[in-house]
């Protein structure tokens, strides 16, 4: 699969010159959601904590960055830092809720957290604009002194650069001891403890780091979409991300982005196919994926072995 990365990066860079502005904006959105999916893969695949709640720090980071964009700073980097730190802070605050849970209990608690955040976002009108959403965030300039990102192409390339940098950092970290330790926790937690590893602390750090990535993606959403509503962070988004991660191979952070791209493309294609029947077809897609994917993975493994 590795040989695919270079052409994929090339295609991603060339895309805004080949596609119309609307498609470019859609691609930017896919990049942003792909980054959230990478944080889901970090928890679900690498650390073994299946999550439906990464939309929560995603939302927290997005609303924080939007508030910053509306009221003070229009510099991209400060917005990214704002999003990441609020996402991390949100995760740190919710760590006691999740860190002792595993498996299906983790899935359930994170789902409840994600849903509560959406509910809170639709009620807290003064900050989030409620269900009407929040609009009018100006386009930022990436750094002090650089020009404003005033086209879809510029915003897309900005998102691509940020996502690329974050992904490289995450992949490099996971190749090192941090990745070993997290995979060790996933494989056999008791054995990690018996070797002296503080499993709870590792998982808490992974959870907070995933929160920071999702929060950073949230601030990127403000830049690329320039509009926020609670629907951007709903349960269906969380489920789509999880499906993308499973398609991408669960343990692979890069695969998560590819999987999310596939899932989002399939969703848009399905809702264009039969207008108004999108959710029905999407539901069918989930059901089909649940049956096909494990078999596919099994077959792939046999082909490889």
């Amino acid at each position: 699969m590795r040989w695919l990365i270079a052409p994929a990066v090339l295609a991603a860079v060339a895309a805004p010159w080949l596609a119309d502005p609307y498609t470019t904006a859609t691609l930017a959105r896919i990049l942003v959601l792909g980054l959230v999916a990478a944080s889901v893969a970090l928890l679900t695949g690498v650390a073994g904590l299946p999550t439906l709640g990464q939309t929560a720090p995603f939302a927290a980071g997005a609303y924080a960055a939007a508030t910053l964009a509306l009221h003070s700073s229009s510099v991209g980097v400060t917005q990214l830092l704002m999003g990441a730190s609020v996402g991390a802070a949100f995760a740190a605050l919710t760590t006691p809720l999740v860190v002792y849970a595993r498996g299906v209990v983790f899935l359930m608690i994170t789902l409840a957290i994600g849903e509560l955040v959406v509910t809170a976002a639709s009620r807290w009108r003064s900050v989030t604009g409620g269900t009407d959403g929040l609009a009018g965030m100006p386009s930022p300039r990436p750094l002090w002194g650089l020009p404003i990102l005033d086209t879809d192409r510029a915003r897309y390339l900005y998102a691509l650069a940020v996502v690329g940098v974050v992904l490289c950092v995450v992949v490099l970290l996971l190749r090192g001891p941090a990745g070993m330790y997290l995979r060790g926790c996933r494989d056999d937690e008791a054995r990690m403890r018996a070797s002296g590893h503080p499993v709870g602390a590792y998982l808490a750090i992974a959870y907070i780091a995933a929160g920071a990535i999702a929060g950073l993606a949230g601030s990127l959403l403000v830049t690329t979409q320039q509009y926020l509503s609670p629907a951007d962070f709903g349960f269906d988004v969380a489920a789509l991300l999880l499906l993308g991660v499973v398609i991408g191979g669960a343990g692979s952070v890069v695969g998560a982005i590819a999987g999310t791209a596939v899932v989002l493309a399939a969703r848009d294609w399905l809702s264009g196919l039969l207008p108004g029947r999108g959710p029905l077809l999407l539901g069918a897609l989930f059901i089909a994926a649940a049956y096909v994917l494990p078999r596919l993975r099994f077959m792939l493994r046999r082909v490889v072995a």
């Binding site: 995979r183 996933r186 494989d187």
Partner: peptide
Amino acid sequence: HQRPAAWPSLSTLDNIAVAGARRCGGYR
């Protein structure tokens, strides 16, 4: 342990290094 329990997805070398890391100043 009575039943050997390694971390199945790590290499044998990484298994040994991870097992010793906390007492020997880190994985590397």
